[in-house]
Nucleic acid binder design. Structure first.
Lengths: 332, 332
DNA sequence: CTGTTAGCGCCTTCAC
DNA sequence: GTGAAGGCGCTAACAG
């Protein structure tokens, strides 16, 4: 293993000088020495030992990202955006997948703290259980006390900078668009009650309907994934339009309806939420609420990295946009 | 920032003892001291400084994963499998996304080397350009010389342990299955010529047709992504069955056909390759060749971590399985 | 079983 | 502009 010292010796300069030219210091080094060092480094095949650098500097150049499930295109898109932004700052991204277990979210923050990552990004819905939320907060606070930066994508419940999608408003807007098409009887595939994102979308939708004087939607709970949508839609009764609180569930719903010979949108309309890229080519194409996922990931990086140590955490609202597509049709 | 020394002092023991109880050492420590240390650590909120640990141990506990594009479900699934396996070993995963630029693959290996990661996983198709391949090899060799482990998912061209999907055979098998259904005139959406995965699948398909005495397929090159499939399929002329060398391209092809009012499978059959999970609910459901993506990711981790320093690199073949679904229909 | 003591590789003030 | 030297937090011999 080639060390800085090897390079310095080979170049006939001091360790300090070698350090200054090889690892971005603000100090100036003379042309001659600089070139000698660079050449020696190249010849010997020197690679900075980031661990040593991190130890000496007290700050690393990696960003930790905690997601629920990388296979879910929602998080893949978020991660992609975060990685692009991180790279622009010269950082790498370390990913932790909780597979939807909130306890592992806490464990990851601890692990990332141990890694002394530059920043931690928490993404995905918060849960209603105040106990896990507060334990996560404790862990995050501990991390921040030692200089760590944190940002969250989702609900502003952690006392940290947050990229906050307008789930409630987006769902409400969707409800109004759907109602404008003549629908009055709705069903909501609402996901699990303990997931706040799901609950917000469901509530926003219902509130908008109430605001229009329409009857309450039929609310069906279930898992937040494809199979959850598949199962939940079986219980729909009497609705002309189904709102799945995320696109992945909507896909499951479409599959279930198709398998039962129910035509979408002829027999029933379906809408989702998120506007997942890889799902754009579904047939029928899915009416949904678009969230700029990649951007949100990038924003989270910027938010975490920006600002001073003691700043009040900022909350950055993210607007959604209703996208009407084939899976919904106007009611005669 | 609480250090091991703080904990040791607080517990009234030596640094060594504290280290032994807190950071998995094989050495034994007496009940009393052990408990005192654990309590102090908890009270003070101690978190191991992994950078210091890595420096002292000369080995980190993170695994580097290089992918082409995380948003591509192929890589998301691979990454998921790798992360699960890594976690079983107590490792975390750092992801680098090349966005399909081979140069960045090389750069990432260098960066991951600097991080002194425990292992590097290279995934995604190799390219035909011998220059970039050899430069990547040089970088990998440098890393391995300093004790790094490497595994590759794809073609065995890097001189490292490799998880090698049977692209050629899988495509050949698919060709035979399709031919058995009565198809004789095929088109292949072949992706870019420089991507070996694409080339292998295309070649395997053509060879199998030749072996059956069938005419050569129409081969259409283009990008390896959704839009590539969309564009390429427009040039298809006279085929009754189209083979897109990956599922994502097949989705693009389906979209293009639909937009032109061409019905699948009634007017033309379409097949893909990979069996991407989130695409299973497409209509019509996609005939494809299944690859156990998550498993492959996990296998890559095991392969990289296993074996002795100087072992001959192993090549682990991965079999594919043809999955016939609705997008293909027997020819009258 | 427990403590002492060198480093691990690099950064960074402080002199020159 | 350049060099010398202490220290970042932890581990792993080596003694006791």
């Amino acid at each position: 293993m080639v060390t800085l010292e090897d390079v310095a010796r080979h170049a006939g300069v001091s360790l300090a000088t070698a350090s200054r030219v090889l690892n971005g210091s603000s100090r100036n080094v003379g042309r001659t020495m600089r070139e000698r060092v660079e050449k020696s480094a190249a010849v010997l095949g020197y690679r900075t030992n980031v661990a040593a650098q991190t130890l000496a500097r007290g700050a690393s150049n990696v960003i930790g990202l905690v997601v629920h499930d990388l296979v879910d295109p929602y998080f893949a898109a978020l991660a992609d955006g975060a990685m692009r932004a991180a790279e622009a700052h010269g950082h790498m991204v370390m990913v932790g997948t909780t597979h939807r277990d909130p306890e592992r979210e806490i464990a990851y923050v601890s692990t990332l703290n141990a890694q002394r990552v530059r920043a931690v990004l928490i993404s995905g819905s918060r849960v209603t259980d105040p106990d896990v939320t507060s334990r996560l907060r404790v862990e995050l606070d501990r991390y921040r006390e030692s200089g760590g930066r944190v940002a969250c994508v989702g609900q502003d419940l952690l006392g940290v900078g947050t990229i906050a999608p307008a789930n409630r408003e987006g769902a409400a807007e969707l409800a109004r668009s759907l109602a404008a098409l003549g629908h009055t009887r709705f069903a909501v595939l609402a996901g699990p009650p303990h997931l706040i994102t799901a609950a917000d979308r469901s509530a926003g939708f219902a509130e908008a309907l109430a605001g229009l004087g329409l009857p309450e939607p039929q609310v069906i709970h279930g898992p937040f994934d494809r199979d959850g949508g598949y199962e939940a839609v079986q219980e729909v009764a009497g609705a002309t339009c189904v709102f799945a609180v995320n696109d992945v569930m909507a896909v499951g719903a479409l599959a279930a309806l198709r398998s039962r010979g129910v035509r979408v949108p002829d027999d029933i309309s379906v809408a989702g939420f998120d506007d997942i890229g890889p799902l754009r080519d579904l047939t029928p194409s899915l009416t949904t609420v678009r969230l700029p996922l990649a951007e949100m990931g990038a924003q989270a990086v910027e938010l975490a990295l920006s600002g001073e140590e003691g700043d009040e955490p900022r909350v950055v609202p993210v607007e959604c946009e209703v996208v009407l597509r084939e899976s919904v049709r106007p009611l005669a």
